[in-house]
Amino acid sequence: MLTFSPRAIVADARPAPVGIEIEEIAKSFGATTALQPVSLSIPSGALVALLGPSGSGKTTLLRILGGLEYPTSGRVRFDGVDATGLSVQERRAGFVFQHYALFRHMTVFENIAYGLRARPRRTRPPEAEIARRVAKLLQLIQLPEIGSRYPAQLSGGQRQRVALARALAIEPRMLLLDEPFGALDARVRRELRGGLREIHDQTGLTTIFVTHDQEEAMELADLVVVMSMGRIEQIGTPADIRARPATPFVRDFVMT
């Protein structure tokens, strides 16, 4: 389907994907503890699932990685460099939100171009270059014709893919997705699962997605992190976790 060089889509000068080090990260909101101190090492270029029921702290961990929350304690390192205090903008993490958070008053084209236009003047690409990149991204998500539509005129699956393209447009160092399939019906879910795998393989980005659906995590991810009540229960490949669940919780959660 894709007739262009997929490797050139995300970055013209392509850096190696980022490895992420999470050291003793904890987060509490007032009196409630969302995240016990957790540690986790994510190899560069991996497709990782944070799997757990609601309230397990998986979204909080993802938001800390993206810089949308600061941890109460602990450090985050990208490629060995401390990133704990970096602002959201400095992190350049492509983030796909649970309900996509597309800008409803902008066309799909403007949504995808937003990150490029938001750059400081000296690094902002010229208009023709922006148009070229948006067109490429629309091809990548296999929706080349929808640039002039508004988010309200799209189906749920199309919105999700536009949100993905918008996140990729900033040439992110990593891709973070919060329940990317949560708001979709079962058939579209299965379709788009393959789409995410494909985009991950083409871009080579370190990709972390949050899900409460164990089937989704097991089918899609290289590495699954099972979480419960703010703790990491087990880290392993899908086969690993299925064969040797580390705790009764993991066994119950993976079996159902």
């Binding site: 903008q89 350049r92 993490a93 958070a101 800008f103 990150g115 938001a118 900033i170």
Partner: peptide
């Protein structure tokens, strides 16, 4: 959510407010 999205796309506070 939309403001957070703009933030992750690298926009500054004033730009987010305006756009």
């Amino acid at each position: 959510a939309e403001e957070e999205a703009a933030l992750t796309l690298g926009a500054s506070g004033w730009r987010i407010f305006r756009t």
